[in-house]
Simulated assay, not measured.
Amino acid sequence: MSGDDTSAVARVVVGVSGSLSSVTALWWATTLARRLGAELWPVLAWEPPGGDAAARRSPAGEWQRPAKQRLAAVLDEVFGAEPAGVPMHPVVVRDSPGRALVRVADRENDVLVVGAGRRGLRRAFSGRVSRHCLAHAICPVLAVPPSPLQSQLLTVHRRNTWHLRIDTRDL
Rank of each mutant, 00 (worst) to 15 (best):
M1W: 01
S2D: 12
D4T: 08
S7Y: 09
A8H: 00
A8Q: 06
V9Y: 10
R11H: 07
R11N: 09
V13L: 09
V13S: 04
G15M: 09
S17W: 01
G18P: 01
S21H: 15
T24N: 11
A25M: 02
W27A: 15
W28K: 10
A33G: 04
R35N: 08
A38L: 10
A38Y: 10
V43I: 03
L44F: 02
G51A: 05
D52S: 11
A54K: 07
G61P: 03
E62M: 13
E62T: 12
W63V: 02
P66E: 05
P66A: 13
A67M: 03
A67P: 02
A67W: 03
K68Q: 15
R70M: 08
A72Q: 06
V74A: 09
L75I: 00
F79D: 08
G80V: 08
G80D: 03
E82P: 03
E82Q: 15
A84M: 04
M88K: 05
V91F: 08
V93H: 08
A100C: 03
V102Y: 09
R103T: 12
V104D: 06
R107D: 04
R107F: 00
D110M: 00
G115I: 02
A116C: 10
R119C: 06
L121S: 07
F125I: 13
H136K: 00
L142I: 10
P146N: 15
L149R: 13
S151T: 14
Q152V: 02
L153N: 04
L154D: 13
H157T: 15
H157M: 14
H157G: 11
R158A: 14
T161H: 12
T161I: 13
H163Q: 12
L171I: 12
L171A: 15
